[in-house]
Every structure is written in C-alpha cells, then in structure tokens.
C-alpha cells in the first residue's frame, strides 16, 4: 500500500499498439481522469505498447486523431512515472531516442517487481 492514507498506487499497463485498436486511446482517457483523483499514478508500456510512444506519428492519412502529443502533456497533470520495457524496445528496433517523451527504461524483472507493489492495476 502507499504510505499516505487514502492514496492508492494505480498502474496502467499498456501492451497494445495505437490505431489498430482503440485501447491505447481510451486507456489514455482513463489516465487523464485518474490524475484528478490525487492518486499515485504510473504507466507501464510493455510489448507492442511501446509503439504508443513512438515519435513522428502522422495520422492524417488514416483520418484519425493523433493522440500521441497527449503523452507529453501528462507531466502537466503530475503524471511523471512512465516505465518502458527494455526488452520490448530492443525487440522492436527502438531506443529511448525514438520515443516522444521522457521515460524510465526498466527490464522485465524490474517491471515485475514494480507491479507487485501496486494496489490497482488497469490493463488495456
């Protein structure tokens, strides 16, 4: 449990790529609402979820809203804990420089330990 009473540790686990399905966008909408509840919020990007943070997304051609700038706005909502799976980045030919926002890169084991510390895990 979190140290402060009444505050829970919420982790949002993102394992899906954007645009192919709506999960990434609607997950982000929950994250923004959660910010208003003064909880201890973190986001984890695993597997194809790391593609959500790829720089240079251009969605005009698919006539869909590009929601990737929202990840950069999270800091303004005091959501600063963004964790990215090291192995998922490497497997997809990406490095931290390919991402559009500052993140903490962790290996799978470290992510697993972090998950065990949560009170609520929401996976999309």
């Amino acid at each position: 449990m979190s140290e402060e009473p009444g505050i829970k540790k919420f982790m949002f686990v993102n394992r899906k790529a954007p645009y192919g399905t709506v999960y990434a966008l609607e997950a982000l909408e929950v994250v923004l609402i959660t910010a208003a509840f003064d909880q201890d919020v973190s986001l984890a990007f695993l597997d194809d979820g790391v593609f959500q943070l790829r720089k240079g997304q251009q969605t005009k051609g698919i006539e869909t809203k590009n929601f990737s700038p929202t990840y950069r706005a999270l800091e303004g909502y005091d959501i600063e804990k963004l964790y990215v799976e090291k192995e998922a980045l490497a497997a997809r030919g990406l490095t931290e420089d390919d991402l559009l926002v500052d993140v903490t890169v962790l290996d799978r084991k470290a992510l697993g330990v972090l998950m065990d510390e949560q009170d609520v895990i929401l996976s999309f």
């Binding site: 829970k8 919420f10 909408e29 929950v30 609402i33 959660t34 208003a36 509840f37 929401l122 996976s123």
Partner: peptide
C-alpha cells in the same frame, strides 16, 4: 456516467478485476 466512476471503483473497492 463518467470515467471518474471507474477510478472511484479502483479507490473504494478492495479488488478490481478486468475482463477484456
């Protein structure tokens, strides 16, 4: 209702289980 109802469930409930 709004998404706040989901967050509230996460805060108030002892367990939150996702089916998807």
């Amino acid at each position: 209702s709004g998404l706040g109802q989901l967050v509230e469930a996460g805060i108030q409930a002892d367990r939150l289980v996702t089916f998807g």
